Amino acid sequence: MPSPALDRLTLIACVHTALENQPWAHTLWEGGSASFGRTDTWSDADLQAVVDDDHVPDAFAAVESALAKIAPVDDRLIVPEPAWHGHSQRFYRFTGSPPWLLLDFCVMKLSAPYKFNDELHGRPPVLFDRAGLFARPRPVDRLALETRLRDRLAQLTARLKFFGHFPDKELRRGHLIDALHWYQSIVLTALVEMLRIKHDPLRHNWGNRYLHQTLPAADAARLQRLMFVADPAAIPSHCREALAWLESLAAELAAMPSLANPH
């Protein structure tokens, strides 16, 4: 059985010890909520490592050997490759531990062109960095971001003009499941992204993640109310309010001198 003291910090220390003295391991840092100062009781251990290209399997082997000494692995999920981010990633659950006490371990090749070391992914706690990865973080191209945001705003606005009526159409048909689907996938999705463009432009496409910390409290509360439809009869009024908010947001954003540097 695992030690009753097993917790997130113990897992981090275990991985740190397993890799720190390996000559092929260059950088180890915490990602996820730790990069934004948002860890709490339910946070997992999110670790990312950079190693020599031919030592990716060795990194997993070293960590799994170290874990076996402190916490028997109950289950392991290997992300199929090629993963969306181009790296190798595994998740671990531990016998007798709560389901949220996961280890999320991502291993990157030293030659990989993009390693999440930019402002987009916050300010991560760095455990060691012999590669100097965080001594020279990647700058954000604000001009390119501005172009992307303007293009995305135009796409969202056009999409709403063509498809924003879909919830109402399905209600008229008596198709309540379809009406709710389009309300969520067309109207609310656009609303979330426009709010993110306004308040968190770097992460405009991060969906519903971290919205309570990202949005002003009043906007977060209003959005939460619009997201939860207790009865089909509420869909029309919710949709009207959301579309009106979207129209106001689109006009506000279009008039802003800069979307990439809003403050």
Score class of each variant (00 low, 15 high):
Phe60Arg: 02
Asp129Asn: 09
Asp104Gly: 08
Leu249Asn: 01
Ala221His: 11
Ala242Met: 03
Pro201His: 05
Leu249Cys: 05
Tyr210Lys: 14
His238Ala: 03
Ala135Arg: 11
Ala61Met: 08
Leu11Arg: 00
Gly207Thr: 11
Leu188Arg: 00
Lys161Glu: 14
His121Asp: 11
Gly164Tyr: 02
Asp200Glu: 15
Leu188Tyr: 00
Pro99Asn: 13
Arg38Asp: 07
Ala59Asn: 00
Ala25Val: 02
Ser185Val: 13
Leu160Cys: 14
Arg76Ala: 11
Leu191Phe: 11
Trp84Phe: 13
Ala254Val: 06
Leu259Cys: 04
Leu6Arg: 03
Pro125Trp: 01
Leu259Gly: 00
Ser65His: 14
Arg159Leu: 14
Val126Asp: 05
Pro125Leu: 08
His121Tyr: 15
His16Tyr: 09
Pro113Val: 09
Val79Ala: 06
Arg90Glu: 10
Trp84Glu: 09
Pro113Gly: 09
Asp141Gln: 13
Asp74Arg: 11
Leu101Thr: 03
Trp42Glu: 08
Asp219Gln: 15
Ser237Leu: 12
Trp29Gly: 00
Pro257Arg: 08
Lys109Trp: 06
Ala242Cys: 08
Asp44Thr: 05
Pro262Ala: 07
Arg172Ser: 12
Leu102Cys: 09
Ala220Ser: 12
Val229Cys: 15
Leu211Met: 13
Leu19Lys: 01
Asp75Trp: 12
Gln224Trp: 12
Ala59Tyr: 00
Val107Gly: 02
Leu191Gln: 07
Gln184Ala: 11
Val15Cys: 06
Ala250Thr: 09
Gly37Thr: 03
Cys239Thr: 05
Ala62Gly: 01
Thr27Leu: 06
Pro57Ser: 04
Phe134Met: 04
Asp231His: 14
Pro57Ala: 04
Gly132Pro: 03
Ala254Pro: 05
Asp141Ile: 10
Leu259Arg: 00
Ser88Asn: 05
Ser97Cys: 11
Pro216Ile: 10
Asp44Gly: 04
Ser3Asp: 14
Leu77Ala: 10
Val15Ile: 04
Ala45Ile: 02
Met227Asn: 12
Arg148Asn: 11
Ile235Tyr: 01
Thr39Val: 13
Phe60Ala: 03
Ile70Glu: 01
His238Leu: 06
Leu188Asp: 00
Leu149Met: 08
Gly132Val: 06
Asp54Glu: 10
Gly96Glu: 10
Phe163Ser: 05
Ser43Gln: 06
Ile186Cys: 06
Asp231Arg: 15
Phe36Val: 05
Met108Asp: 01
Leu102Pro: 00
Phe116Met: 10
Pro125Ile: 01
Phe163Ile: 06
Val140Ser: 09
Pro82Phe: 04
His212Phe: 06
Thr17Ile: 03
Asp168Leu: 12
Leu120His: 15
Asn261Met: 10
Trp24Glu: 02
Asn205Arg: 13
